[in-house]
């Protein structure tokens, strides 16, 4: 009976895992085929015409490396700035009797409810007033700020679970407020910081709509816009696209997987005990 149950659940999990990876399988197999192989009736992974030439030409005949570099830049900076800002706000909101704290937190949550696409036009106008069109700065500001509410909530939730006495002990031991944050709270909050960073990184790494409006110089393109150039309304370079998609996805998937342990504890900690 127990054995049967185990086999059944393993079977279910295997089935769903197949469901989860199937589209990836399709992209991967497309990335080895020619341009038009998205349209093909074979489900085989490797066909007679398959080769790694798409990957080869991705690096040799396109600006893929430039895009990659730009994306890394932007994502890393957004992660630093966004998480940095969120730490400050989250910590204050979690620990200090800030004025209007409750209202502030509510407003933070409601910002998540506005359809982001409608902010494009105002964003553009703000950025052009600030002369930040066509620079990474504009992108950095928008990305970090738009992901802030979620990050602040996330970190505040985690900070709430850290016993107050830990800080008090540190303050008696000789820490200033800043040292308490830096030497005690942050090292203790590593799981939550990892998750928050991951989300920030992901946003910047995959965002498309805003980047398309802000960045105009091809030398500044990030991966998502770069990828989009393979795809034109009447002729998509499917092979290149698929190969690039695989390369773009690999780092995030690896990050996700290596942080999946933290994800389990970090995501829910705040709400379980908060």
């Amino acid at each position: 009976m127990r054995q049967l149950k185990k086999i059944l659940s393993l079977l279910t999990l295997t089935l769903f895992s197949l469901f989860a990876v199937f589209p990836i399988y399709v992209v991967l197999s497309t990335s080895f085929r020619g341009d038009n192989a998205f349209q093909s009736t074979s489900l085989e992974f490797w066909t007679k015409t398959s080769s790694i030439s798409n990957y080869f030409s991705l690096f040799t005949s396109t600006d893929f490396l430039t895009w990659m570099r730009n994306s890394l830049w932007v994502s890393a900076a957004v992660t630093l700035i966004g998480v940095g800002f969120a730490i400050g706000a989250g910590y204050s909101l979690s620990r200090f009797p800030i004025r209007g704290k409750k209202t502030g937190l509510l407003i933070l949550m409601t910002t998540q409810m506005f359809p982001c696409t409608m902010l494009l036009l105002p964003f553009y106008i703000v950025l052009s007033h600030l002369q930040l069109i066509n620079s990474f700065w504009g992108l950095l500001i928008i990305y970090s700020a738009t992901s802030l509410p979620f990050c602040i909530w996330q970190l505040k939730g985690f900070f709430d679970t850290i016993p107050k006495e830990l800080e008090e002990a540190a303050r008696l031991d000789g820490c200033s407020h800043f040292q308490v944050l830096y030497k005690v709270i942050l090292p203790v909050s590593l799981p939550a910081l990892a998750i928050t960073s991951l989300f920030n990184f992901m946003t910047a790494w995959t965002e498309y709509a805003i980047a398309a409006v802000v960045l105009q110089d091809p030398q500044l393109y990030t991966l998502s816009i770069g990828l989009k150039t393979f795809q034109s309304s009447l002729a998509t370079q499917w092979g290149l696209y698929a190969a690039a998609a695989i390369i773009v996805s690999v780092p995030v998937v690896i990050l996700f997987m290596s942080l999946s342990k933290f994800l389990v504890s970090g995501l829910t900690m705040g709400s379980v005990k908060g």
Partner: peptide
Amino acid sequence: PKDRDLAMVFQNYALY
């Protein structure tokens, strides 16, 4: 607190 020349032991230990 750090300048008051005192140390404290907490109920829940509060070890780092």
